[in-house]
Design a protein around this nucleic acid. Sequence first.
RNA 1: GGGAGUGUAGCUCAACUGGUUAGAGCACUGGACUGUCGAUCCAGAGGUUGCGGGUUCGAAUCCCGUCACUCUCGCCA
Length: 590
Amino acid sequence: MATPTRTHHCSELRAEHVDQTATLAGWVNSYRDHGGVIFIDLRDRKGITQIVFRPSQPETHALADRLRNEDVIQVKGTCIKRQEGMANPKLETGDIEIEAQTLVILNKSDTPPFTPDEAHKVGEETRLQYRFIDLRQKRMQKILKTRHRVTKIMRDYFDEHEFYEIETPFLCKSTPEGARDFLVPSRLQEGCFYALPQSPQLFKQILMVGGLERYMQIARCFRDEDPRADRQAEFTQLDVEMSFINQDDIIELIEGLLRRLWKDVLDITVPEIARISYAEAMTRFGSDRPDMRFGMELVDIGDLASQTDFKVFTGAIENGGSVQAICVPGGAKLSRKQTDALAVWVKDFGAGGLPIVKVDNGSLATGVAKFLGPIADQLIEKMGAQDGDLICFGVDSKIKTVHRVLGELRVKLAHDLDMIDPNDWKWIWVIDFPLVEWNEDAKRWDSLHHPFTAPHEEDVEKIASDPGAAKSLAYDIIVNGSEIGGGSIRIHQQEVQKQVFGLLGISPEEARSKFGFLLDALRFGAPPHGGIALGLDRLVMHLENTTNIRDVIAFPKTQNGADLMTQAPSPVSDDQLAELSLRPAVKIEA
RNA sequence: GGGAGUGUAGCUCAACUGGUUAGAGCACUGGACUGUCGAUCCAGAGGUUGCGGGUUCGAAUCCCGUCACUCUCGCCA
């Protein structure tokens, strides 16, 4: 077999190469056999070039007659200019073609289940099963190229800022907090298990105590939880940690990175990114990851609600709850059927229902309008509502539910009513998160970020006196309503860490057994430090304008955690199990 | 764990209210054709209607169960 070399890529040849000899190699993208002359569109990573086979080269022509889609071939021939009217403006290389002298079939392909050109209309299940074909389509190649550029830019950027890229272990100690761990049985220590890292959190802090000062890693993380459109069990983070810095340093550093990424990939300039507090984000947008591309901010109308006889409103307020509203511009055009569907939809977020009114001729109509007569004018004014608008109410005895319902609703309505400019980008930092949040079910305080997040210095006393009011030095970076990263300044003093563990109900014994190494590290000269992690998959999703995380991962998993190509996970042999001292509760034959 | 949706030829889809032999386009096979580029023309082959059960004279269609895939609530410090 000939060596599959080539002199040019399939995107390169132009009129200026006419009369030159060229050797190309690639896949048969399509073939057109005219009995005499045969045309092949030859494809490689970079483009497509048309090859012509003429009967005047009988041996080569006979070989070419057998070519089918996705055969891998090597062609040597002469670059010739296409005659007048025969150029193909759809191809970069459409002014020329290669007149083949020799053809080598490097590898004949079985009939493919689909071709790269039609992959975009093939079901995802089939694409994932034959991922090696799917990856040949232009879109997938572009996405993976972008992903490569993003990680390259990250490494260059942090290198310029004197960060070291340091690997951390995959085989880690299991900590039951947070997400469910993926467990790996130990062969050498019977009955014991490693866990795959949910993130390199503790290791990167240890690196700071270890004096490395600036660390970054493109880190694979594992969380054994149910997936969503934008998240799967195995994902990648840009992980960063720095010593002797404050929150502003991290924010400025990451803004610089985002600026370079968007400029380089999309030629879009990232402006100085505004910061809002968690409290403000919740009050105005009902969410800690507000989408700032549209309005419809939440308005507290508790004062007006209590002036009505509408029991839904007054009842909620009497129970210590809240009545809030959003004004949906042009929302009055929604049909009864559509608003009824919204009322069902909001129940997923804990709402009892969705009271609405439409604004018509300067007054309220339909829905709950008949209950709101006394406050109609004030409501319209307070909401800034116009004729043709829809006002949706969030009502509950818990303000948290009201925020959630209206926060989710405003995003859904903005999409449904096409209120978002697809070319708009809105970045925002959310800062000053509460340190902890009361978990009503478990009757305890939970970390909002994680247990190593530092409180504001002036709030340290509140850990004991008023934990819910203590704010943390945590920050999330949001783009278009999507959280693409978050981090915090860490606790670097053993005393404070002990207090936080105490607040979280982690006993000293428990803390010692789970995080003893961290507590030790904090005793021996831990510098002040902090960091952040950005979701690489989500970042690439934004840059490539997809809502499907599987699009930006070469070999993704399905919702069931399966790899449809390799058929993982799979049963294993009894021998393998015995070696690991494992006995499954459910046995599936290997 | 819950809710919703999808599953028919290799691929994308159709098949009325349960009713003849489950169709079409692309792909595939054979043939024709010397300028196509979504080639064209002629002919052909290709089906466990995801799987299992049930109702019925009769099931792709209705019912129950199950599996896979998607979206989603819970979950994801």
